Computed example of a mutant assay.
Amino acid sequence: MERTKRVAIVISGLLLSACTTHAQQTSAGLDSTLDAMAGQPVDVAIAWLGEPIGSAPMGPDLVYGWGQTFTSTEYTNAAPGFVEAADFKGGVFPAPRHTVQNNCVIRMVVGADGLIRDWDYQGSDRGCRAYADRPGSHAMLRAAS
């Protein structure tokens, strides 16, 4: 019984550290991809992110924006110990669950010459992960260079 508790504690710690690491990887991946776009034509960003949802003038520059929002359902409380298969009712994780709003907004400042000058983004890890995990983003940026 004591060994089971230790295994459960170690697994819980690993799961929590994996979540933190993935959030840091998402942020770092998106940061490096957007950094690589600086100095590139805005068409590179459009090819990777799709058509912007809008643009607005800012002095002599133009600010383009991309964004998304969606909801997901997350498990609220960790069950102590192991959950037997017979206890599962209604999905992968037993109740209680809650709905979470996920979002991400990316903005790019483009100069009159059509080149990306600066960028920023904000949003939840899960919301921005969709942009960070796009396949081929780094290969596409290298080809545009």
Rank of each mutant, 00 (worst) to 15 (best):
S145F: 05
M58L: 11
R126W: 11
P57R: 15
Y64T: 03
A139H: 02
M58V: 09
N103V: 00
C104V: 02
G111P: 13
G50K: 00
S145T: 07
G136V: 07
W66D: 00
A47I: 00
E51K: 13
M58Y: 12
T71M: 12
A86S: 13
W119R: 15
D61Y: 07
M58G: 04
E74V: 12
G91L: 02
K89F: 10
W66N: 01
A8Q: 10
H22Q: 13
A112R: 02
T71S: 14
I53S: 14
G127A: 04
A8S: 04
D133A: 13
C104N: 04
D113I: 01
V7I: 13
N77C: 00
G13E: 08
L16T: 15
A143M: 03
L141V: 08
F93N: 10
S32L: 03
G54L: 10
A95K: 06
G54Y: 00
A132E: 00
G39M: 01
S145A: 13
Q25E: 12
P135R: 13
S12R: 07
W119E: 00
M140H: 04
R3M: 06
I9N: 10
M1W: 00
Y75T: 09
T73A: 11
G91W: 05
Q40L: 15
A144M: 11
K89D: 10
V92M: 09
A144T: 06
R3Q: 04
A132T: 01
P80E: 09
Y131M: 05
N102T: 04
E84N: 14
G114W: 08
C19H: 06
C104K: 04
C104Y: 02
L115W: 04
H138Y: 07
M140R: 09
G114M: 02
G127D: 02
N103C: 05
V105E: 14
K5V: 03
N103K: 02
T33G: 14
I116S: 08
T73P: 03
R97N: 11
V83I: 13
I53Y: 06
G114L: 11
E84W: 10
V92K: 09
C128K: 01
P41W: 03
A8R: 03
S27T: 03
F70M: 04
V10P: 02
H22C: 10
G136I: 01
E51D: 07
G90T: 03
L14M: 15
L34N: 02
T99Y: 01
D31V: 05
A86F: 02
V42N: 10
G114E: 05
T69S: 15
G29Q: 04
I106W: 03
A85V: 03
F70R: 10
P135Y: 04
N102V: 08
A112D: 08
P57I: 01
R3G: 11
G91P: 07
S17R: 06
I11F: 07
E51R: 14
E2K: 13
L16I: 11
I11K: 14
P135A: 09
V63F: 08
F70E: 12
M37R: 04
A132S: 12
S137Q: 11
A45M: 06
A86N: 09
T76V: 05
A144E: 05
I46K: 12
T73Q: 06
F82V: 09
D31K: 09
N77F: 14
Q25S: 11
S55Q: 14
C104D: 09
N102Q: 13
R134A: 13
F88S: 10
I11Q: 12
T69G: 15
Q101A: 15
S27A: 12
T99K: 15
V109G: 09
G13S: 02
N103R: 14
